[in-house]
């Protein structure tokens, strides 16, 4: 009895002595108030991203202040200012554009409020933000190529539907994919064009591929996003080619419609562009508040999905329609 009393006193003393910032935040982040400045709700993926962050906060007992910037930087800046005024413990920012954040991030720094960047990048000084949590596009490309290499035993003539020329998603996915197929002598990209990340673009480019080349010589189509692939499957069907069978398909994003296509046997696999960035972002906040140093970038990698789970994934992701 005396022993436990003593230990309690000791614990209290230790707790008083130890600086309050150290080891004070529970790992889950429970009890923290965090402001989240989101870009907006311009796409299904963005909406899923917001919902994932909100659900994660609820699960962890974090008090999340959510702001929808409606794709405007000035809305996001005023949201951050209001978070600062409310004295939040940390701010998570999904920036709509890369530039123009220095001033408002400096204000947050002056108030000693850490800022974690998620998704897109910012050009602001490195000292003004804690870390950046975002998808690893290169990894997505590698995973896509790795699946294709396995599915074809490393022997495949590939046509590529690139995203918008110069976009980081297109460049990095291409890089990751090409890294892996370079390991196999018989894997080669025979045709490549940009479909601008749209269905119409993917369909038009695939039509021209099927026109230029004997469809029987194409082993697989690799699209930088699902929308272009869906357009391409329509082009294939109209040309009398069976997508998913005559020509294999692999794409990135995991939007609901690709699961529908997979469940109908028109697509083979999709790599997820993970919208689950809330967890890693909250972890980063907690780690920072607990005095850990963080790397410049925390990559978030998505999994790869196949037709076997497509029907139920479609159900889940399209809101059970």
């Amino acid at each position: 009895m005396r022993f436990t009393k003593l230990s309690i006193i000791l614990l209290v003393v230790v707790a008083l002595i130890v600086p309050t910032t150290f080891a004070q935040v529970p790992e889950s982040g429970e009890g923290l108030t965090i402001g989240f400045a989101q870009v907006g709700s311009e796409s299904a993926w963005r909406t899923a991203f917001s919902e994932a962050v909100i659900a994660e906060a609820e699960e962890r007992g974090i008090n999340l202040l959510f702001s929808d910037g409606q794709q405007r930087q000035e809305n996001q800046i005023s949201a951050i200012r209001s978070f600062i005024a409310q004295g939040v413990d940390a701010i998570i920012l999904a920036p709509v554009v890369e530039t123009g954040w220095d001033e408002v991030l400096q204000e947050a720094a002056d108030n000693e409020i850490p800022v974690v960047i998620v998704d897109r990048n910012v050009t602001a000084d490195r000292s003004l933000w804690v870390t950046r949590v975002s998808s690893d596009f290169v990894h997505e490309g590698r995973l896509a190529a790795a699946w294709l290499a396995q599915a074809t035993a490393g022997d495949c003539a590939i046509v590529e539907l690139q995203g918008t020329v110069g976009s980081s998603a297109a460049l990095d996915r291409q890089q990751g994919f090409n890294e892996v197929i370079a390991l196999f002598d018989n894997m080669e990209i025979v045709l490549t064009q940009s479909g601008d990340f749209t269905r119409t673009g993917g369909k038009e480019v695939m039509e021209s591929f099927l026109n230029t080349m004997d469809p029987a010589e194409i082993c697989a189509v690799w699209a930088h996003n699902d929308d272009m692939l869906i357009g391409a499957t329509q082009a294939m069907e109209e040309a009398g080619v069976d997508p998913g069978d005559d020509i294999l398909t692999i794409s990135v994003d995991a939007i609901p419609d690709i699961f529908l296509a997979m469940s109908e046997g028109k697509a083979n696999a999709t790599v997820e562009l993970s919208p689950n960035m809330g967890g890693p972002a909250f972890d980063a906040v907690v780690a920072y508040l607990n005095g850990e140093t963080l790397p410049d970038w925390v990559p978030v990698a998505g999994g790869i999905y196949f037709p076997d789970t497509a029907a139920e994934e479609y159900e889940r992701r399209s809101g059970g329609e």
Partner: peptide, 14 residues
């Protein structure tokens, strides 16, 4: 025509 072509209305890109 554009909508029917891809069996979908893409408000952002059409």
């Amino acid at each position: 025509i554009l909508t029917a072509d891809i069996k979908g209305a893409d408000a952002n890109n059409a």
